[in-house]
């Protein structure tokens, strides 16, 4: 719940939509692929080094890990189809004989299928996320802010005290 609250606060804040969308896209990889795969170390490095929103990344990774469990048979089929594609046998054979490919366990159908799916969704998800966040802030957030009850709540002493405390803790 706390994570969800922070996520909502991020969405409602002035944070750049690209930072949120990129966090979501990186979470696609770490969430949809097996969590302990070596390539997720690279994803973690990018998440920490690039200025992406960490709350979004953590929340999305957790949510997508659950979804990935349901999509596992689909990833297996995709991975198997790609790894057994006649056209790519030469490439896979060459890669199979490299240490990094074996270490990354990319000859596994689920790892390959989920990674390819995540990479394929990466760019569309970035732009779609950006667009949705902008529209959310423009329409939904503005509508919520105009609600009478919200204006009353924001004017209350309790909310003012909470804002002051949040600002002191450096929350976005």
């Amino acid at each position: 719940m706390r994570l969800l609250a922070r996520l909502l606060r991020v969405l409602n804040s002035e944070t750049d939509p690209a930072q949120i969308s990129l966090a979501l896209c990186l979470a696609l990889i770490s969430g949809l692929t097996p969590l302990l795969s070596p390539h997720n170390l690279v994803v973690l490095l990018l998440t920490l080094v690039l200025r992406v929103n960490l709350s979004t990344f953590i929340a999305a990774t957790l949510a997508l890990s659950g979804i990935a469990y349901l999509l596992d048979p689909l990833f297996h089929l995709i991975g198997r189809a790609v790894l057994t594609l006649d056209l790519l046998q030469g490439t896979w054979t060459a890669l199979y004989n490299t240490t990094w490919f074996r270490l990354a366990h990319l000859n596994n159908t689920v790892v390959m299928g989920s990674l390819l799916s995540a990479l394929a969704l990466f760019v569309p998800a970035f732009f779609l996320g950006n667009a949705l966040i902008v529209r959310y802030r423009l329409h939904v957030l503005a509508w919520v802010q105009r609600l009478h009850v919200v204006r009353l709540l924001k004017a209350s002493r309790l909310y003012q005290a909470y804002r002051a405390a949040a600002n002191l803790r450096g929350a976005p």
């Binding site: 469990y69 297996h76 790894l83 046998q89 896979w92 000859n107 596994n108 159908t109 689920v110």
Partner: peptide
């Protein structure tokens, strides 16, 4: 046959 969920199947290729 479908492998157990979460495990997948290791595809083998000729090794040097």
């Amino acid at each position: 046959g479908a492998p157990a969920r979460g495990t997948g199947q290791d595809i083998r290729f000729p090794e040097t």
